Computed example of a mutant assay.
Amino acid sequence: MGPSAKGEPVIVQDETKVDVGIHLQQGSLTLTQNGKDFDAYHASVEFVAVHDGPWTADKVKFSAMGPDGKSVGVTVDLLNDTYDGPRAAVPVAIWKVVALAATSAGDVGITYTTPDPHPM
């Protein structure tokens, strides 16, 4: 007998955190940390909503292949220390990863726009 299931899955809209994972084409994104290059192959973007505020991307956790051929994790924090805007100097390529994940996040009710790097 094959698998079976009952019920109708419902997405909880009052969640305060959602992770969206995406696979990256090998060689399409190289992360550099402490002078070493890492070939990213998967990204998990963490979206958060605080106090009924809009959804925003908080961090990206990358799975990558290191120069020694071993898998490593690289985390990039996206929000500044006061959580009121983007962290300075986040590379454009990482924001593109966030935008790709946000496309998938739309399927679960997350509306997201890239933050203004120069808030008033």
Rank of each mutant, 00 (worst) to 15 (best):
K6M: 15
T32Q: 06
Q25L: 07
I94P: 02
F62E: 01
E46N: 03
V60R: 00
A88M: 08
K61Q: 07
Q33R: 15
L78R: 05
S104L: 15
D19A: 12
E8L: 13
E15S: 11
V72H: 11
S71Y: 03
T114R: 15
L100Q: 12
G35N: 10
G73I: 05
M120Y: 03
A101C: 13
T103E: 15
K36F: 12
G106S: 12
L79T: 05
D77M: 10
V48L: 04
L24P: 02
L31K: 05
V48G: 00
V18K: 13
D52Q: 10
Y83E: 04
K36H: 14
A99W: 03
L78M: 07
G69M: 09
W95R: 04
H118S: 09
W55T: 06
I11G: 03
A88S: 13
T113R: 15
M120Q: 13
G73Q: 11
D107C: 10
T32V: 14
P9S: 06
D84N: 15
K59S: 11
S44T: 12
F62W: 02
V48C: 04
A64W: 02
V72N: 08
K59Q: 12
A102T: 09
D107K: 14
D37Y: 02
L31W: 03
T56G: 02
K61I: 12
S44E: 11
N80M: 01
M120E: 13
S63D: 13
Y112L: 02
V12C: 05
T32S: 04
T56F: 00
W55V: 06
G109T: 06
D116P: 01
P3S: 14
V20T: 09
V98S: 06
S63C: 03
K6L: 14
E46K: 02
L78E: 03
V10T: 11
S71P: 03
Q13T: 10
D84Y: 05
K59E: 11
G109L: 10
V45E: 03
E8R: 14
V76F: 01
G35C: 08
M65K: 10
G106C: 08
K96I: 07
K70N: 13
P3W: 04
V10F: 07
G69N: 04
V50E: 13
S28K: 07
A89D: 15
